[in-house]
Design a protein around this nucleic acid. Structure first.
Lengths: 234, 234
DNA sequence: ACCTGAACACCGTTCAAGT
DNA sequence: ACCTGAACACCGTTCAAGT
């Protein structure tokens, strides 16, 4: 195994904040929300808990740093430059966030927490800025900037968060077959609801069965975008 | 203290699943997400952990039951009947959910989890049905029912979840003064961002300072509603 | 059928001690 | 300055034993 510096080292690759965060993300990705423990961390890094606490204040800070890292990467990878309308760029950014949350489902609750509990932290402004710039270029009048951007961001985080978790659901169901099975089970359950109490949900079970997560997500984005342009009467 | 049955009892009010869930909600409301522990539960109920496990399978089931109870109450209290357009009824239902999450901030992550991990459970269809019926009455064509309803529900849960947590933030800030302080701190932080990297967020800091959570939330609902009617070209 | 409470495995965090 | 690892307080859950 090659080391960073190029020379072969014994066992220790020298502990660092970055290395700890990297392993934290790996643990979260592979073992889900409960996979990040200090025991697992010390094992993978071949140290004691004290060493980790020297680089990181506590578990909360570690989660924040992991979240910030992944989100920054997702926003930086923006294929948004390629799209040539603000509308398409918003769709691209939204899809990038959707896919980041899909790949790292532990992000969803983490993002919600940081957005509400720590809006002064790095993550909130990063997402807000990214979407907001495109809203401005959409020609939305200034007094509606905040409302329009909040609306989009809330939808994105809400929808992505909701969808994300079935990706990693009970035991990470990653394959298409498993996803299909999951969707089928839900549609079946909805079809078996009491006709008196749940006429609408029953009527819509078939659409739930047929839907594709990504398409559905983008259709929602289009809905909010249509609303934004409709409200300004343009 | 009067007992349910009217007669004065010694110490034990007879343990029951309902009583356990009731106390669980109290603990979550007063002490936040981490407030629900089996130790606290056994203390308040004057029993041992084994007694609780007799009535409830585990902590997860307890959280599900608490969530279902509070949401069912919120949807039943619908002042939606009073409103006389489907549009106003959607606003009323949405606001009811917003306020339930505001009063019980622990609901937010719980709802997200149940929506994605357990869409066959009782909570998802209840919310979906409630909003969906009004979408149908809005005159939305059948093939758009699922998309329109999902869009609304995702926005509601996303926005309510995001807003909710500052209600109970670090140490439940319930008074208007504390809320105002929180909002002011965020606006200040946004104004101090790097002008090169965050021009939009800085420009919008003032709107963030002035905004009212409820108004903002409803403006977002209107955005999605406008989108729904715009998309069907009516 | 319902409840008791000691015990188990595991968690995040601390801290005196080493280098 | 950076790391070690035993120890602490706390957690969800189990289970033999009681009534």
């Amino acid at each position: 195994m090659a080391t960073r510096a190029g020379r072969t080292q014994r066992r220790t690759e020298a502990l660092s904040r970055e290395r700890i965060i990297e392993v934290a993300v790996e643990l979260l990705d592979s073992a889900g929300d409960g996979g990040l423990t200090f025991r697992a961390l010390t094992e993978r890094l071949a140290t004691g808990p004290g060493a980790i606490y020297w680089h990181v204040a506590n578990k909360g800070e570690l989660l924040e740093a992991a979240t910030d890292g992944v989100i920054t990467a997702a926003l930086a990878a923006e294929p948004a430059e390629q799209a040539d309308s603000p509308r398409d760029r918003i769709r691209a950014i939204a899809l990038g966030l959707f896919e980041a949350i899909d790949r790292h489902p532990w992000l969803a609750p983490q993002l919600a927490a940081q957005f509400s509990r720590k809006p002064w932290g790095p993550v909130t402004p990063r997402i807000f800025e990214s979407i907001g710039r495109q809203v401005r270029e959409l020609g939305v009048p200034k007094e509606n900037w905040f409302t329009a951007t909040s609306g989009l961001v809330h939808y994105i985080l809400g929808a992505a968060g909701q969808n994300a978790a079935n990706a990693a659901s009970v035991r990470l169901l990653r394959t298409e077959d498993e996803r299909a099975e999951f969707v089928e089970a839900v549609a079946k359950a909805w079809e078996e609801l009491d006709p008196e109490e749940y006429p609408f949900t029953r009527a819509v079970a078939d659409q739930a069965r047929e839907h594709d997560d990504r398409e559905q997500f983008l259709a929602g984005i289009d809905l909010v975008l249509a609303g934004i342009t409709a409200v300004q009467g343009q």
